[in-house]
Design a protein around this nucleic acid. Sequence first.
DNA 1: TAGTGGTCTAGACCACGCC
DNA 2: GCGTGGTCTAGACCACTAT
Lengths: 249, 249
Amino acid sequence: MAKIDRTSGVPIYRQIKQILVADIEASDGAGPVMTEEELLRRFRVSRAPIRQALRELSDEGVVYRERAKGTFPVRRSQVKRPSALKFGGLISYLQDRGLHPVTEVAELDRSRPPASVAASLELAPDEDVFTFSRQIALEGGAPVFWARLFIRSPEEFRPTAEELKQSGSAFSLLARDHGINITRSEHVVWLTGATPEESRGLQVPEGSPVLVVETLGFTKDGRPGTWRRSAQLPDELKLVFESNDPLWG
Amino acid sequence: MAKIDRTSGVPIYRQIKQILVADIEASDGAGPVMTEEELLRRFRVSRAPIRQALRELSDEGVVYRERAKGTFPVRRSQVKRPSALKFGGLISYLQDRGLHPVTEVAELDRSRPPASVAASLELAPDEDVFTFSRQIALEGGAPVFWARLFIRSPEEFRPTAEELKQSGSAFSLLARDHGINITRSEHVVWLTGATPEESRGLQVPEGSPVLVVETLGFTKDGRPGTWRRSAQLPDELKLVFESNDPLWG
DNA sequence: TAGTGGTCTAGACCACGCC
DNA sequence: GCGTGGTCTAGACCACTAT
C-alpha cells in the first residue's frame, strides 16, 4: 500500500498519512525529510490533500514543519506513551502488572447533588442528576481507588449496577443510549486528607493522605455534563498526561 | 475592526478569527450559528481562509463544527480556566491569593545525572547536563514547593543563580541563548513519601506525604531535553490540566 | 538565487442531516 | 430536495532560509 486508491472512498489525505507514517516507522531513526513538492510528484495529487495530511501529522506530533526548511519526522522513543489513566485503562493497567483488580459500583441514585456540584454543572433549580460511586480494589485486598460521579442526563438514564460494572463506563452508556458525548475535560489534582466518604470507600482513617482528582467533563457545545471526584492511595497509581505548552522552570 | 484589511500584512484568516471571536464574546450566551457560505459573502474572500479560520477556532475549542449542520460557538463559563501550573505561574498564583512567595535556586552544576535520568534523557555516555534545584516558600514561612531539574544543553549553558531567579525560568534562558525550545512534555503525577533530598528542601520529615510531578520535556524533533521532579506539600497547591479525551468512568 | 512552507483564489463534487 | 461541512483541483504570490 504505497499507492493512492481513488476508488476506495477513503480520502486521499488519509491514505497519504498512512503511507507517510509507515515510511517513518520503517526508516526507524534518521527519518526522511519530506517536501511538499516531492510528495506532489510522488502521489500525483494537488497540494490540498498533501498539506492536510502534513498538517494533521504535525498536529499529532508525528512530524514537525519549519518554514523554508522542510518537514521532518519527530523522533519517538520506543516506549508506548500511556495517556491519562481512565477507569477502564486503570483496570488493564493493574492487570498488566499481574494484579487482579475488582471494581464495585454502589449508591446508584437520581438526586440533587451538593450545591457546589450543582453550581459546577450549572444545573437548573429543579434538575437532578444520576450519581453513583465506584471502587477499585485488588483481588482479596484493600481498595486502592474510590470515586463519586454525578452525571447530568435525561430522567430516563438509570443504568443498573450490573450495566455499569460490565460496560466499565457510565459515559459509554450515556453515549450509546442518548448520543451525549464528553469531548473535553478539566482536571484538578491535589494532595489532601480523605473525606469521611472517601475514608469509608478506601478503608483508611479519615484524613489519611490521598491523591484527589476532580474532573469536570464538557459536551461539544461547552456545557458541563459530568462531575467526578476520585481519591487514591499513596504509591498505588500514577496519573499520566501530556501537554504542548512550552515548559517553565 | 469588522472588515478585512488586505494591506496590513496580517493573514486574512487571522483577521477573520479575531472578528469571529469578538462576535462570539459580544453575543454572550446564545451565540450565532455561522455557515461558511454566509462568511464567504460577508468577508468576500475565498473559502480557504474561511476554512482555516474555522478549523483553528475549532482546534482551540472556541467553536465546534458538525457536518451538514453548521458551526456553533462553544459555551464557555465566565471563570478563567487556569492552565497547567508553571513555575512562573505558580508565583503569580500565590501572589493572587495575597501570599508573598519567595523563590530560591541552589545547587547549580554541570554534571552527570543519575543513571535513570540519563536514560530518560537518552544521554551519550560522556554527556553531562546543567542541573539545579528550585524552592518556593511563602514569605517568612515554610517552603511549599521544591524541584530538581536536569537540562540537556551545550557546555556553554551555565546560567547563574541570579539569572535563574530573575528570569523565573531556565528554559527561557535556554531558548534565548541557544534557540532550544521545549514544545511538548509528559507528566507523571503521584502521591508518595518525600525523598531525603525533598525532605530537606521542604523542611519536613523524610517520608512525609508529598505530591510528586515528574516531567520529561521534548524539543520539536522529539528528543528529550529536560527532566524535572517536583514535590509539593498537601493542600498548598493544585495542579490543573485539560484533556480532550472522551471521559471514562 | 533556489527551494521551502504559508497563504489565497475560484472553481468542483461529495456525504450527510434535516425537512 | 436543499444546505451543510469535507474533500479535491490547478493554479498563484509571498516570506523566509540556506547557499
